[in-house]
Write a protein that binds this DNA or RNA. Sequence first.
DNA 1: GCGTAATTGCAACGCTGTTGCAACTTCTGA
DNA 2: TCAGAAGTTGCAACAGCGTTGCAATTACGC
Lengths: 156, 156
Amino acid sequence: MPLPQTEAPGRLVAELLSRGVRMTRQRRTILSVIETASQHLDAAQILRRARKLDPGIDRVTVYRTIRLLKRHGLVDELDLLHLEGEKHYYERHPQRDHLHMACVRCGKILEFESDLFERLKGQIQRDCQFHILVTRVEIGGYCAKCRGNSTDLRSV
Amino acid sequence: MPLPQTEAPGRLVAELLSRGVRMTRQRRTILSVIETASQHLDAAQILRRARKLDPGIDRVTVYRTIRLLKRHGLVDELDLLHLEGEKHYYERHPQRDHLHMACVRCGKILEFESDLFERLKGQIQRDCQFHILVTRVEIGGYCAKCRGNSTDLRSV
DNA sequence: GCGTAATTGCAACGCTGTTGCAACTTCTGA
DNA sequence: TCAGAAGTTGCAACAGCGTTGCAATTACGC
């Protein structure tokens, strides 16, 4: 029987501890929020959820924790084409890169993995002598449901 | 003898006029700044250059013009992985999509076109039934010069 | 040219994210 | 087990990017 796709909870905590980062109550809370999220969360949403678990947590602590995770390459930052304002969204850095498709009409976010993209990265590393650390692919358009329905001009 | 790669100047003006958009002195100035830029400019840089040509131009007009161009799909917005703050950069929407590679050490931006990427887009449209309007690919890492030089941890 | 509708500049605002600092907490080492 | 150094937190204030309301001005079809 195959194991579920989800990774062990607490992996962010373990990862940071193994790198000698101090673990506080607030950090554990914020990390668990990020880790158990089923969708892409922005800083305000992370704060709101963290406060349900520990009401004293401050905005600033959330921002500092996100920065910490970014510096350690444990989360990726997305803006999903700024379909709703200037916020940034965060997700666990995945085992394997994926692309994000955002429907400019209904706002739905789709994710997509592709061998072609892996080959493209290989081509870049070879042809440009560029050592890739992070990738971010955001594609805007109409999802299957919304295509054909309208010629809505939403700012992308 | 092949023509140079650059497109006819004034094409943004022509494009907007053909869509029934009013053309003001300020807009012409801002459009010419964007059109003749050899690098990716942020809003503040666009404003500074526009003011050299027409000192009265206001910040707000620059933002409104950028929004107009985005709505018409005539410019693409990039953030180049926020290597320097939260600004956005703008470039003419190209004939053919290209990827942006940002060196996290020296900040250099490379552009790259690839048939593989065109095939990837085809795959997405087919497999996901997703109608692509814009793409945005930003890749962070070390450029040829900087790779091997350091293990600098810059926030990406 | 006239008139209307769009655009501009100004001021004020909102939101996301950052910084300085005193109080507090974590964690090492004895 | 506990003392001390180093790191972290919360608060308040700030910075920067981008937006909005509004009166004055401008473009452009008729």
